[in-house]
Nucleic acid binder design. Sequence first.
DNA 1: TATTGATTTTTGTGATCACATTTTTAATAT
DNA 2: ATATTAAAAATGTGATCACAAAAATCAATA
Lengths: 232, 232
Amino acid sequence: MGALKLQPLVRPDGMTTHEYAHRRLRQAIMVGSIRPGEALTIRGIAEAMESSPTPVREALRRLSSEGALKVLDNRRIMVPRMTADRFGELIALRTVLEQHAARRAVDHITEKQIDRLVEIDKAQDEAIARKDSATTLLLLNQEFHRTLYTANPDQIIMPMVESVWLQLGPFLGIAMEYVEQLYFVDRHQEAIAALRKRDGDAVAAAIGADIREGIGGFERGAIENLLRLAGQ
Amino acid sequence: MGALKLQPLVRPDGMTTHEYAHRRLRQAIMVGSIRPGEALTIRGIAEAMESSPTPVREALRRLSSEGALKVLDNRRIMVPRMTADRFGELIALRTVLEQHAARRAVDHITEKQIDRLVEIDKAQDEAIARKDSATTLLLLNQEFHRTLYTANPDQIIMPMVESVWLQLGPFLGIAMEYVEQLYFVDRHQEAIAALRKRDGDAVAAAIGADIREGIGGFERGAIENLLRLAGQ
DNA sequence: TATTGATTTTTGTGATCACATTTTTAATAT
DNA sequence: ATATTAAAAATGTGATCACAAAAATCAATA
């Protein structure tokens, strides 16, 4: 049996079933709770969220277009396996994408929106002090970055950034399981200061360092070890 | 009635209906043959390609995730409208993405693959001399870029590049209709020379210039004029 | 014990139907 | 003519069914 365990998620009023299925699966993949190689069946998912194949299939198509899922030749669907090379590509792409997104936000972001960034950063510090779950920290960190990039009203890049996050999710799940304690360092304050000065280069530098010293800090050997440990 | 006219497209053996619907719609959007704001109905598309709503819906979900289509609050689906600001974002993003993709391909591309690029470039020159349709030229140009970027076996970026192409498609359709003759200049030979020398910076510079002097060359005023002419 | 082959089950796929909402059309009143 | 209201048509959505292909199970054989 599928026996797919999905964290419950509130379903806002008026949200369609396929949209709900999409959001719920996406959330699960993003925080690494679905393992690469794990078999995903349409009927299994439909059963798990008490609906039917049709809307689940729509959700799966979207997720595969977002790079979160891969459709095999057998037409079976799974979370893509990670490799050290693919991880390197993802980090390099993440850096380029987010530096560009940050630069493009500098001319649009308001002081009020920067204040919001300060709030999120504070919430993150509190969560660290409170020793909240790694998942909570991850989501707060994403909220910081998303808030920054979407300050640009004509921005086109956010879905691509989220796609990279989605593709990194499963590896994060493995890391959270096998690494004693993940260090959470960030360069958010540096980014905020640069934003206040409207210094695009400095903002991009802060974002670059933030990624490099965060998830980008995994060394090749460490990645290979983790993947071996997880039986990937 | 929808009266959606879709260019015929061969359906490879074994291709599923939703995949075929996806490819056919994608192709139509990519070359600008579906106008922004044009009403797209599930049943209309299903009828046009002699199938049923279910697979068409899957195709539409994928295309909306790829940024090619937008789902309105009414749940109606259409090709997004272009604005001068959005166009600017798309060109800036296209430049960053493709320069990165090109850089990342330099270390992987083989001499044989570079030879293939030469062939495609030659085919392009012949098509220009033959005064082939703008669509043909567009597709050849895409083939050149795609061949270059996918030389990197672990590449993650291609779907994002294609997403930008898709989002530029409808504007290209408008431009092709209202502009007397589109100039086709490219920096492909420069890129090829740089690839042979394995000079990443030079390759990126060539790609940057290629985009800037190609579709990126539309000036803000020209874009606004075109959009006004097309009643957008 | 391992392997092959047949049977059963599971799974993806696509068409169809019913329902609710939205859009369009038609008719009426101002 | 314009605006308003009611009826009709069109549309998105989700469940269900039938079918074919794939996977899993089990029995028989080497």
